[in-house]
Amino acid sequence: MEVRTIKVFTTVDNINLHTQVVDMSMTYGQQFGPTYLDGADVTKIKPHNSHEGKTFYVLPNDDTLRVEAFEYYHTTDPSFLGRYMSALNHTKKWKYPQVNGLTSIKWADNNCYLATALLTLQQIELKFNPPALQDAYYRARAGEAANFCALILAYCNKTVGELGDVRETMSYLFQHANLDSCKRVLNVVCKTCGQQQTTLKGVEAVMYMGTLSYEQFKKGVQIPCTCGKQATKYLVQQESPFVMMSAPPAQYELKHGTFTCASEYTGNYQCGHYKHITSKETLYCIDGALLTKSSEYKGPITDVFYKENSYTTTIK
C-alpha cells in the first residue's frame, strides 16, 4: 500500500517557510505537534488534498525554529505562539472599519479597549522592536488589523473576551517599542525636605499616572512627601515624541487643539466601556464603527496623549 502524501510549508514567522512532505494517514499533531492554519487549530486533523502548498504555523520545537521565533517575536515564552494563534482565530472574524481616516474595530468580545489602543497607536510616533509587531502594525494602518490585535493580546497575556485596560495595554506595548531616546527629568520640591531631581528613561519617561493635564504637570502637581507634608512635583525636561497622561476616570474637559487623542471610560472596574476622542479640525468621538463630532467635550476621561518633541522648564 502506497503512502499518500502532500507537500506543505511549516513556519513560526510566515517569513521562513520549511518544506514538509506530510503523510495523509496521520494527523498534523502526530507529525508536527500543535499546528495552526489561519489561526485555526488543526492539530487533530489529517492532511487533505486542499492543504497542498498551504502554510501551517507550528510551535518552535527545534533550534532553527526557536531562533526564527525569537528573532521575529522577541520572546522565548513557549506558550506565546499558541496564544497568538488562538487569538487570531477570533480577531480574523472582527470587522476593521476605516473611521475618520483611522483603522478602528467594530465592537465584539469586549474589544473596546483594543480599538482605543489601536486608534491611539496610529496617532503617536512609535516604532516597535519585534519585527512581528512592526509588520502587523503597518498592515493594521492599511486596514488589516487582525494579526496586530492578536499579537497585542498575546504580548499582554490576554484572551479574547476578557476586559482590558488601555493604560495597561499601552504599557505592555511600550515595553516592546523603541523608547531608548526618551528621557524625563522631574523635580520634587518640599518646604521641609528641599528639592530632589529624578531622571527617568524609556517607558517611565512617557507615562504618568495622577493627572490628565500635561500643562498642569509642567506647572506642578501636589504629591505627598515622605515627611508627610505636601510637596510639588513638576516637569523639568521632556525628550520624547509623545507623552501619555493618565488618571482614574473623572469628568474632564478636553479643549480642541490642546491634545492629540484621549480615552474615555464609562462604567466601573468590573464592567465598563471605552471610547476614543481625537482632536482634528474639530473633536471626534470614535466608538467602534461609530463616529460623532463636537466642538467641545466633557466626560469621564482616563488617558490623554500629547505630541511632544523637546521641553525644558522655565521655572527657576
Rank of each mutant, 00 (worst) to 15 (best):
V166H: 09
Q98G: 07
Y306E: 02
F174I: 03
L17R: 11
G228E: 00
T313N: 14
N157A: 03
T75W: 02
L59W: 15
A154P: 04
L283F: 04
I45T: 14
M245S: 02
E52T: 11
L118C: 09
V243M: 05
Y72I: 07
V189N: 11
L163R: 15
Y284W: 13
D13C: 02
F148Q: 08
H256R: 13
N61L: 12
C225P: 00
S25Q: 15
G194K: 06
R167P: 00
L59F: 10
E264V: 13
V58L: 07
N157T: 01
S181Y: 12
V22Q: 02
Q222T: 12
V99H: 10
T169L: 07
T19E: 13
G272Y: 06
I124E: 01
L283W: 05
P78T: 07
K233Q: 14
G272W: 00
K183V: 08
T278E: 07
T19N: 09
T232F: 05
G228F: 02
L102C: 03
Y28I: 05
I15Y: 15
A231K: 03
W107Q: 03
T5M: 11
Y214T: 00
Y208V: 12
A117P: 00
Y208W: 00
L153T: 06
N178D: 13
W107H: 04
T292S: 10
M244R: 00
D109Y: 03
T91V: 07
N89Y: 15
G164N: 02
Y274R: 00
A150V: 02
Y36E: 04
S279L: 07
K280E: 09
V99T: 09
Y252D: 10
Q270V: 15
R139F: 02
T302G: 01
H48W: 11
G267N: 15
N111T: 01
E68S: 08
A136P: 03
Y96R: 07
A136K: 04
Y138Q: 15
T19L: 11
F9R: 11
V99Y: 13
I315F: 15
Q230F: 15
L121S: 00
W107Y: 04
S79P: 15
L173H: 00
R66K: 09
G210K: 01
P224F: 09
V67A: 11
S25M: 14
Q20M: 10
T199S: 07
P224T: 13
V99C: 05
T64G: 11
K158E: 05
D63V: 07
A142Y: 10
M207E: 10
C182I: 05
T258G: 09
K316D: 15
D38Q: 11
D287K: 00
A250V: 13
L212V: 11
R184K: 01
T64I: 08
A87S: 10
C193D: 00
S25F: 13
N89V: 12
P130K: 00
N157D: 10
R139N: 10
I6C: 13
T55K: 09
A87K: 07
L291E: 05
T116G: 01
L153H: 05
K298R: 11
T292N: 12
V8S: 02
T278W: 03
R184C: 04
R141S: 08
G299C: 00
Q216R: 06
K127Y: 11
P249G: 00
E144I: 05
T302I: 10
Y297T: 01
A87Y: 02
G220V: 03
V185I: 12
N147Y: 05
E215R: 01
A40D: 14
V160M: 03
E239P: 01
P78A: 12
G288H: 13
N49W: 06
K298T: 03
K255T: 09
M26V: 14
H90R: 10
I277R: 02
S25E: 13
A262K: 03
K92W: 07
N147W: 08
T10C: 10
L17V: 10
I6N: 06
Y113C: 07
G101N: 01
Y155A: 08
S181F: 10
V243D: 04
I152M: 10
D135K: 06
F174W: 01
A132T: 04
C190R: 03
N49P: 12
K7D: 10
W94S: 05
T120S: 12
Q98A: 12
S279A: 10
L81C: 05
L65F: 08
P130N: 03
G288A: 02
L133F: 00
D41E: 14
Y311A: 11
N49D: 13
E2R: 10
N110L: 00
I124V: 07
S79Q: 08
F242K: 01
F80C: 06
G210V: 00
A231M: 02
N61R: 11
L212G: 04
T312Y: 10
T43L: 04
Q123L: 05
L212D: 07
A289L: 03
T211I: 13
P47W: 01
W94G: 05
A69Y: 06
I315M: 15
F128I: 05
M24R: 13
P241W: 02
K275F: 00
P78I: 09
A154F: 03
I301D: 09
T19Y: 12
D109A: 04
K219N: 11
G228C: 03
K293Q: 15
A262M: 05
N157K: 13
T211F: 08
G272K: 07
